[in-house]
């Protein structure tokens, strides 16, 4: 991993441009997510733009500093949490007496528009998954393939890998410093 950061060139132009643009793209992404019900856009598009904001920061200021600033638990929480929340909202409608994701139950039980169930799925489900996956794809691809890991070996060696899992990010950070 010692040849890692030779892909990064510090450019005053890119850094300044990203500093100016990033607040706007983040706001636009959030706007698109929260306004998906009444305007074009929604969780998929808004989540992508929020994710792209982080990608732009990584391109301008180096991937490794951005990776250290963004914890793995945050990304795992975004990706897995989004799926869990989406499923939980669906199951919640069953708990209210309807079918999976049947938002009309909101109207019958709580007397609120089904719109809020729909928005909850878009904002707390889809956009979290999409933004998390976009950022994760970028960082996993930036980290690349390490051929020293054994491939196609199940059982014991995969258990070994799982055991050394918590240590590996620490070791990588140490290498890159």
């Amino acid at each position: 991993m010692s040849d890692y950061d030779d892909t990064y060139t510090e450019s005053q132009v890119i850094m300044t441009a990203v500093k100016i643009i990033a607040p706007f793209t983040l706001t636009y992404g959030l706007f698109m997510t929260f306004h998906g019900g009444d305007a074009p856009g929604g969780g998929f598009q808004g989540g992508t733009i929020v994710g792209v904001t982080v990608l732009m920061l990584a391109f301008a200021f180096g991937i490794e500093p951005t990776r250290q600033w963004l914890k793995n638990s945050v990304l795992t929480g975004l990706v897995a949490g989004g799926v869990v929340i989406f499923g939980a909202i669906g199951l919640g409608m069953i708990a209210l007496g309807g079918d999976f994701l049947e938002f009309t139950m909101l109207k019958e039980v709580f007397h609120i528009k089904p719109k809020w169930g729909l928005e909850a799925v878009e904002i707390a489900g889809i956009s979290l998954i999409v933004s998390g996956v976009i950022i994760s794809l970028f960082f996993t691809m930036a980290a690349g393939f390490s051929p020293e890991r054994p491939s196609g070996t199940g059982g014991i060696s995969s258990a070994d890998n799982a055991a050394e899992g918590p240590d590996s990010p620490v070791a990588e950070v140490g290498d890159d410093d």
Partner: peptide
């Protein structure tokens, strides 16, 4: 898709 990228690149952490 996110999880399978980890599988293909043989990694265990996203970031």
């Amino acid at each position: 898709a996110g999880v399978s990228t980890l599988l293909v690149l043989k990694r265990e952490v996203f970031a």
